[in-house]
Design a protein around this nucleic acid. Structure first.
Lengths: 229, 229
DNA sequence: CGAAAAATTGATCGACATCAATCTGTGTGG
DNA sequence: CCACACAGATTGATGTCGATCAATTTTTCG
């Protein structure tokens, strides 16, 4: 029932903020929170796609609120969750090279997001130095933020996922101790490279052993703490 | 015994080539193969490190010949192979942001490489536009080239690794049907998230079933072909 | 040649997949 | 408003792939 009921992420926590500011999209308010000039707030309902693999890429996106999944759709049409995307994440960066998106990105919760057309980047030549460096730094950071480790036992992987989500929520100002997984067991299984029954059993086990409390997608951290990773 | 005895990769196959050219390192020979001005050819013996995690980053590197492994060294000192690096790969790109390398990179074969000091990038402001775009495209490509899938059965993962190596050798002009794995079973096991005995058994099984021929690190592809992935 | 590292092979065990049934919650139409 | 349908989640029984323990064998190299 209860979903992370926090508001949209503040711009200062967004990976895109430097690029965004330099492109002149953010209104010139130095206190600069969510103020954006010229662009209507964009939203996406559950199940809708931000973009699809193979589509020509014209924009970068920043997640402001809600959660999405990045999926690989195999030739057989089977989909594989390769990442979850939370507020502050920038999506579409792999498109700079070939100008074609390489994944499908689907909302698993109602999503609010920002859109930065790539065309804007090329009209900002006056500040190209600063901008280029900001972009380069951003891409560089993105290349480090990889998928959760698909190593170790399932217990470790589930724990790692929960802690990673906790860390992200915490970092973007939400509650890091009690939050929603945002995904179905099926999606978690796909992300961690295992099966739905195993995810379920593992969560129940963690509950029994008082590491966490689970009720549907709602999770509360008890004894589970970082460094356990 | 026999190792991939091909020469160094041609610059035109290197991911760094555009950046390199714009920085004026490559001599102005339009036929432009391996000619590099001002920099001595650099080599690395087996076991030596190109750089270590935590070191201040001052350069990008491009692999010309040989093979390296990218390893994560845990707090307990245990090392985990997260990628193998072959000619044409660019290393150190994650360092743009924090100016600190995030992995150890170790030669598993004798290596020849190019070094591009980051300082050069900032002295090329005249061509900053072109350069920035080249860099951005490169980083973008790098963010896609991920680790081999740590999914599916061991058989599938081993097959995927072999085919990926085959593809890379092929692409850089070497023989894609017969080549050296370059790594010990231990390193392969670490990369694929399994155990040395399992790697050995799997390779033997593939041999028995005439998918490949194996002799030490030397591999020959028989019935194993792409699309099996 | 002899020592050490790497690789292979065998036996056994456990974690996770698989198959299958049940339960819970949510939305829908009578 | 309740009954029903359906998707998601849980729980159980059983089988199997890969981990683990252990012993050789092969290769590498001083």
């Amino acid at each position: 029932m209860s979903i992370n009921a926090t508001g949209p992420i503040a711009c200062r926590y967004c990976d895109l903020v430097e690029v965004c500011r330099l492109c002149g999209i953010i209104a010139r308010r130095e206190s600069g929170e969510l103020q954006r000039a010229g662009t209507a707030p964009r939203t996406l309902p559950v199940g809708a796609r931000l973009f699809r693999a193979g589509e020509p890429a014209h924009s970068l996106f920043a997640v402001r609120q809600g959660m999405l999944k990045t999926v690989d759709v195999g030739t057989d049409g089977e989909e594989h969750v390769v990442a979850v995307n939370t507020p502050g994440d920038v999506l579409g960066t792999e498109a700079f090279g070939k100008r074609i998106y390489v994944h499908d990105v689907v909302a698993v919760q109602p999503v609010a997001y920002c859109k930065l057309p790539l065309s804007l980047l090329s009209t900002q030549y006056a500040r190209v130095n600063e901008l280029a460096i900001a972009l380069i730094n951003m891409l560089s950071r993105a290349s480090v933020r990889r998928a959760p480790p698909v190593r170790g036992t399932i217990h470790q992987r589930v724990a790692a996922l929960i802690l990673e989500l906790s860390r992200r929520f915490e970092q973007s100002g939400a509650d890091g101790r009690r939050f929603s997984l945002g995904m179905t067991r099926q999606e978690i299984a796909s992300l961690l490279g295992t099966r739905i029954e195993t995810v379920s059993r593992t969560l129940q086990k963690m509950h029994r052993e008082k590491e966490i409390e689970v009720a549907g997608q709602q999770v509360t951290l008890l004894s589970l703490k970082p460094a356990t990773v």
